[in-house]
């Protein structure tokens, strides 16, 4: 077992513990300690802010939906909302902490199937992040200002179709490349 495997076990333990603890002081203390670690010890302000910003829209939508449903059922959602938000932030920060110290590919090295799934997912995410960025630039450069609503929908539909086909082709190619290099030989 290597250091990355141990870090993965630690991450799972943290997630399990965070899922069961409802103590606001503990959750806040956990949040504070990892924040301090990123800010002071590692000096990674950007990483911390971008991590929090990415999860924020999801939390806002979730909290709002929960708040509305609580009002309708005449409950008091505030304590639960604080716990929910802190818990999600804690989990995200735990994941960032893991990513800071461990190499995810090495952490999953005990299972070739998991490694395979990770590689496929990671390569797809990376490709589509880049593609999405390119598409947004294309949209800006190729769409004239008075483009009709119908044209925009058509463009987006074409883009979605392209993404889907590209995902399949790329997954097939990645699997083929792994096969060529002997990845599946001993499974």
């Amino acid at each position: 077992m290597n250091r990355d495997n141990l870090m993965l076990i630690l991450l799972f333990l943290c997630i399990i513990i965070l899922s069961f603890i409802n103590n606001i002081a503990f959750l806040f203390g956990y949040f504070l300690s990892i924040t301090v670690f990123f800010l002071i010890i590692r000096g990674r302000v950007g990483t911390l802010i971008s991590g929090i910003l990415r999860v924020l829209p999801f939390l806002v939508v979730l909290s709002f939906a929960f708040y509305i449903s609580s009002l309708l059922s005449k409950g008091h959602p505030y304590r639960y909302l604080v716990i929910l938000n802190l818990r999600v932030f804690d989990m995200v920060l735990s994941l960032m902490f893991f990513r800071e110290f461990a190499n995810p590919l090495r952490a999953l090295s005990f299972s070739s199937t998991l490694t395979y799934i990770f590689i496929l997912s990671y390569s797809q995410i990376k490709t589509f992040t880049e593609l999405y960025y390119d598409f947004s630039l294309v949209m800006r450069s190729r769409m004239v200002l008075d483009t009709s609503y119908k044209d925009r929908i058509l463009f987006l539909r074409k883009m979605a179709g392209y993404f889907f086909k590209k995902a399949i082709a790329r997954a097939e190619d990645t699997a083929m490349a792994m096969k060529a290099r002997g990845f599946f030989l001993y499974d």
Partner: peptide
């Protein structure tokens, strides 16, 4: 297959897809 894969090596058009190790 083992002997064949060792003897024949292919570089794909997109090198990205054939790299899947941690370092």
């Amino acid at each position: 297959e083992r002997a064949f894969r060792k003897d024949v090596q292919l570089m794909f058009q997109e090198p990205d897809i054939m790299l899947f190790n941690p370092s």
